[in-house]
Simulated scan of single mutants.
Amino acid sequence: MTRQEKIVKTSIIGIVVNLILVAFKATIGILVNSIAITLDAVNNLTDALSSIITIIGAKLAGKAPDKNHPYGYGRIEYFSSVIIAAIVLWAGITALMESWPKIFNPDVTSYTTVSLIIIAVAVVVKIVLGKYVKRVGENINSQALVASGSDALFDAILSLSTLIAAIISIFWHISLEGILGVIISIVIIKASIDMLRETVDSMIGSRVDSELSRKIKESICEVPGVYGAYDLSLHNYGPEDMQGSVHVEVDDTLSALEIHNLTRNIAIKIFEEFSIILTVGIYARNDKHHEIREDLEKIASEYEEVLEIHGFIVFEEMNLATFDIIVDFDADREKVKNEISDKIKQLHPQFNYIIIDDYDVSD
């Protein structure tokens, strides 16, 4: 079964279960005059609608690349997640507007044994559904399914709170409908904002997962002839389509053919292990002036803001030495670079130094 088929199958299961819960909860909510149960039914309806949007998004995202969209349509899944978040936010705000007045003017609620049993069953069903959807989403890297699964587990907690409020109402004749409705509304609103923030981060381009970055670099360094992997940059064109680039440090004596074979082996290795298409660039390594490199690394170690120095190379015919530096985003980058440049020039004045500014985009 393909990833798209798994998303569709899981979403259909979610739709069917949620619609059944909507029918039962809405009926009970109206019969016993419970705003909390009615709002819980509305929340299940938005869950079903979210699953429908997830299916549509998965179908559209699965379209093959074409001339106008050579990277495919994978990012459509992010747009579907934004739509889902907006729907959930609307449901939360609507619920809040309905619930707030009930705190000051509570309605009389008459629960029945049948209504309580159905609410209890709904709690169990939502827990099972939530765990299933979330597990599938994690296995196939579907942000929308993970969000739906988490939301279902949270719904179970909200339904449980409704059940507790009903029991309190029966035994102590205290109405918590309005208060519970407001709490449910706030929870729904917060969940939608979190979902929206996570999706927008993916669309903008958030930091690469540090564990993934380290694993990729470690895998590259396992290739014979590679002294280090740097400047890893990854971009996603959907949850299952990631491409990027990296620089590797190799001996400056390698021929073009040897470099070609080396970079090709690295690209194939990373694709087989991580399903990532990687473009490999080269840093030439020459230990002839290793004393300068060692002094440079010692100077850099004095600065907590300096995360890494790499790509060091000396061009004797031009009396020039260059290297890349990664300085923390929060530091005064220019100040740090100038100080390091001055210090290394004092120790080895026979060369001019060019510092290439890199950014901390991984690890």
Score class of each variant (00 low, 15 high):
E211V: 15
I309G: 01
I216N: 02
P239R: 00
N286T: 05
S81E: 06
K25L: 12
G92Q: 03
R293L: 15
K6D: 10
G62T: 04
L163Y: 12
T199K: 05
V306E: 03
S50W: 06
D194V: 06
I55K: 03
L163N: 10
I53M: 09
I204M: 14
G149T: 06
A26I: 12
S99C: 03
S210H: 07
K335G: 06
S301L: 11
E302A: 13
M318K: 13
Q4F: 10
V250I: 14
A23Y: 08
L31P: 04
F24V: 15
S142M: 07
F79Y: 12
A152Y: 05
L129T: 05
L347H: 02
R3P: 03
S362H: 08
V327N: 10
V146E: 11
N352L: 11
F323Y: 13
G205R: 05
I268T: 15
D209I: 04
S159R: 09
Y78E: 14
H290F: 10
M242I: 15
G311D: 13
G311Y: 04
T54N: 09
H69I: 07
R264Y: 14
A144I: 14
L49N: 02
L180R: 06
Y359L: 12
T46D: 02
S245V: 01
I15T: 00
N236P: 06
I93K: 04
I326K: 10
F274D: 05
L49A: 15
I170M: 13
D107Q: 14
G92A: 07
K343Q: 15
D107K: 13
A152P: 02
Q346Y: 07
I164V: 14
T199Q: 03
L232T: 03
T2V: 08
G149H: 08
V16L: 08
G29K: 07
E291I: 13
S80I: 04
I35N: 04
L254D: 10
L232A: 00
A23M: 11
A229H: 04
F329P: 02
A229D: 09
K343N: 13
S219Q: 15
N18H: 01
P65H: 03
S99R: 02
I56M: 04
M242V: 15
D151T: 02
S255H: 06
D324K: 00
E297G: 08
V182E: 00
S213D: 00
I118R: 02
I326G: 03
D201C: 06
D363P: 02
I76R: 00
I84H: 08
W172M: 09
L158F: 00
N44H: 07
N338G: 08
V248E: 04
K190E: 09
S150M: 14
H235S: 09
